[in-house]
Nucleic acid binder design. Structure first.
Lengths: 219, 219
DNA sequence: CAGTGAAACGGACCGTGGTCCAGTTTTCTT
DNA sequence: AAGAAAACTGGACCACGGTCCGTTTCACTG
């Protein structure tokens, strides 16, 4: 049971090197055999349909494989595990967000003061969370890996940067993690669904949080 | 597949009423049949042994049942699910912490100013987290339920109280959740194990966080 | 000290995530 | 163009979490 060579290469390994600029997922498609690409598309389409029909819980690896007329092993080879498949479904919006952060218009993108960018960032993530809440929750990998997954690292890296700009003498990574914790989909779900808080309250809570953390008044 | 009556009563349901003073778990033992109590003890002992021998991952429901010379159904009847079993293993230290918060000596218990109590609270939870990290991680229920589980609600309720005392005009529950997010075992694991940060850094990060959130200098 | 109903027991059973590998298809090399 | 190497496929297979339900044990009553 000790770590032997993986039976087949995982599509995206948790890398240890800085990932700030790597667009994380989706970059594994370039060299993909014709049939593989075709099947990948079929699988994603099938999964999307299953989500729409039976909710995220209905996305069974076997069901997806069957719906795409493909072997089960293929699903695992392509996406690594269930988490990987779900993440792939979320990938599109994640990439959009990343792009907006890196090169979109202010205040989300570069050009605005850090405090405002942080405010906009929180609102954007909050929105995205409620939009895809079910998937976000289902895609949550086992707790151990949650923070080390590339998209997550990209986001916290981004926040770290902004925090460092706003308060250069603070322990930026730690403050950033505290901020990110507030945006955790599970927390958002709990506060909105179980506690019945409206999204607006979460948003102004975010503003308050940012203001306090960087000791600045947000307009 | 819709919600029918549960096959057998869950040992502790997520209640919706305020739980601030209820000592959460462990209060279900009072009326327990002799054999049930005996088996419960045997199961906990077996589980503890398995954790020591094979790590938390080795705590298989079947293995525990076998090691306790008990049927598998019994394990589920007693603890609801794997999460419940792991939580029961953590219950002792959780209760200790709760007791210390409610009636222990300051600054953890009542009697110190809120800011200092918050500081002590963070250090205590951080310590407890690193002590039982493996179990804490394994016991993490599915994301959806994480925040609604009684022990967690007790802790965030406590923090909410302290925050409200410290900054009466803020949205205390939200600030409290932000603080609690920093103490999430998964985050602690990531920062200490994956990023190699020493516990001391996390602790001073906590102090910094508290100071900023309640806009007060901590001694 | 039976008798009785409720609670606990236990293991067969199921669905799902994940692995493996024998056979096939694609791409590369010469 | 042909053959070999690499990559992909698909379904049989396994382990584990969780459920069901017929059987057994407990604790209370008269």
């Amino acid at each position: 049971m000790s770590a032997s060579l993986p039976p087949f290469p995982k599509p995206q390994e948790p890398t240890d090197e800085p990932v700030l600029l790597e667009l994380s997922a989706g970059a594994d498609e370039p060299c993909l055999r014709a049939d593989a690409a075709r099947n990948r598309a079929r699988l994603l389409e099938a999964a999307t349909r299953l989500v729409a029909e039976h909710g995220a819980a209905g996305v069974t690896m076997e069901a997806v494989a069957a719906a795409a007329s493909v072997g089960k092993g293929t699903v695992f080879r392509r996406f690594g595990d269930r988490t990987g498949l779900l993440m792939a479904l979320l990938d599109h919006s994640a990439q959009q967000l990343q792009a907006a952060l890196l090169s979109g218009p202010p205040p989300l993108g570069p050009g605005a003061p850090p405090a405002e960018r942080l405010g906009a960032f929180g609102r954007a993530v909050l929105r995205q969370s409620v939009d895809h809440l079910e998937l976000q929750l289902a895609a949550q990998p086992e707790p151990t890996r949650r923070h080390s997954f590339p998209p997550q690292r990209f986001l916290s890296g981004h926040v770290t940067l902004l925090v460092r700009q706003a308060v250069p003498d603070a322990d930026a990574p730690l403050l950033a993690q505290a901020l990110m914790g507030y945006l955790d989909p599970a927390l958002v779900h709990y506060l909105t669904k179980d506690c019945g808080m409206p999204l607006e309250r979460l948003e102004s809570g975010w503003n308050d949080l940012v203001e306090r953390l960087i000791r600045t008044e947000l307009p």
